[in-house]
Design a protein around this nucleic acid. Sequence first.
RNA 1: GCGCCGAUAGUGUAGUGGUUAUCACUAGGCGUUGCCAACGCCUAAACCCGGGUUCGAGUCCCGGUCGGCGCACCA
Length: 580
Amino acid sequence: MILMSDVFENVMDLAKRRGFIWQTSECYGAVAGFIDYGPLGAMMKRRIEDIWRNFYVIEEGYYEIECPTIAQEAVFIASGHVKGFSDKMCQCPHCKEYLRADHVADGGGISGASTMTNEALAAAIAACKCPACEEVLGTVEVYNFNLMFATTIGPGSQRIGYLRPETAQGMFVDFARLLRFYRDTLPFGAVQIGKSYRNEISPRQGMIRLREFTQAEAEIFVHPDKKTHPKFARYADYTMPLLTYVHQQNGEEAVTMSMRVAVDKGVIANEYVAYYVALTHDLLVTIGVKPDRLRFRQHLPDERAHYATDCWDAEVFSQRFGWVETVGIADRTDYDLNAHAKQSGTPMTVFIQYTEPRKENRRRIIPNMSVLGKQYRQKAKAVFAALEHATPTADGADVVVDGETIHIPANLFEVRDEVVDIRGEEIVPHVIEPSYGIDRMCYAVLEQAYDEDTVDGEKRTVLRFSPRVAPVQVAVFPLMTRDGLDTIADEITHTLKRKGILAEYDDSGAIGRRYRRQDEIGTPFAITVDYETKETRTVTVRDRDSMKQVRIGIDTLPQTISALVNGDMKFTSLPAHQNL
RNA sequence: GCGCCGAUAGUGUAGUGGUUAUCACUAGGCGUUGCCAACGCCUAAACCCGGGUUCGAGUCCCGGUCGGCGCACCA
């Protein structure tokens, strides 16, 4: 349509002016990386989150949980964030370049940088050259920069806590309870929508990169050998352009294919990842992302987290920022559960029962505790343990305890060969993780909804929201504020509100001005009470995008508006279109 | 963090050291108005923060904050 000089500026200006998004605590001077959602923005965000819930909680059946945004240090030691999210940094005194101190050490042939103290590392790299300007560094300060916000828990306590950098860990640490909730059966999933925090060095690009942001994440626990999605048929024929890492390396364009083909050809690792790639496409289109501004890009092998076997990003095209990573869908394998099991000492496995028990020969060596115990006392426990794995002969068994070979006579233990039923095995599930950046989705919806057109030579600014995400769902206007028209409009407003519809009454100014106000905040429909209303109990319903109107009875308004707003009915399918 | 640029009513702006900071739109009130930002009258509303130079600073200088861009960073 109209070429907009800079959509980002127009959108953010409108967002600020009309109460969608603004900078936080402006009266004290804003802080980079933090935003407030205003009245309309918070409503829009909630509607987007609710659509997400429809997909993941209601349709997929993965219940939502809510964990604290602060967790104790052990959680993030296990997840790798304490170490991996923290870099040893230093600054070149000559060119002011910020450098990874450990990389400088590696480049200078110094080993063991990761185990040195900051002071030792600083001393070690003093003789190294700055990789940027080639000058010898000399005296530098090495410090840790961790992207997690740290805090302490409790009064005067030294117990360290961190604000979570992702919601995912909450689902992992709750694994055992979730497994019980889902009655010890794979696959199952849990989701969480909430705030996460990263102390970004340089937050930029409006609301694209924030220090506090909202994530919607699902962790789906699956059997490692069964990555076939039970409902794969739903999206098997769903097609979309896929930009594989091979395409990217060869500088080729994305190729459109169905999910079935993508899995069969090995383009996408498994059905689970493919299923959520397709579901994500479906979801993003539902909230109003245009398909031609949406692509799925596979992570390059060196870009993937070390544990992920496959990872796809949903990228939304922004006229300002180019392709913006908005959703990541990764197969995290068993990395997280293993890490938490090790750190916490709690097993995080599922018992998978075999369809048929397996017969297995087993030899058990049963020691005569009363005799051996007395004989070996403190060593007894170690002796028992060693004996279990010993290879007994006719005259006994030799075990080695603390380097000492001890002969246990055959009469002090019994060897039992038995056939046992193995009914199943403990396995560590793999995790499929779709992770959504809600703020980026909100921005994408705003940017893509923004439009300007020309009506009677005048510019009209309109947010072409899907009715499902529009904060205000319908506006109600009396044509005149007299002759009882305002009373009727007021009654209609209240009737709609009682049905759970967010209706806004407005009688201020000319009717055209009121339509324009609602256009600018993306209200999809407007009801006008006119003089005919008093005679026929009908009102006009006006469509934001076409500006066309139809006349319908007051009594059918609640059901009609509901259907229009939740997408069950299109405006064009209403009878008796007329231009008034 | 570094470098460059910027910051004046809600929004967009004018203002090259000197009265009471310009204009438009927006918003609120009253009147008018029989369907797409009409009109009249009235009202409200701003120099990012801190320091300095000066008789006098929105204007000049320094520092900070925020924003944009380029680097760097982005498990």
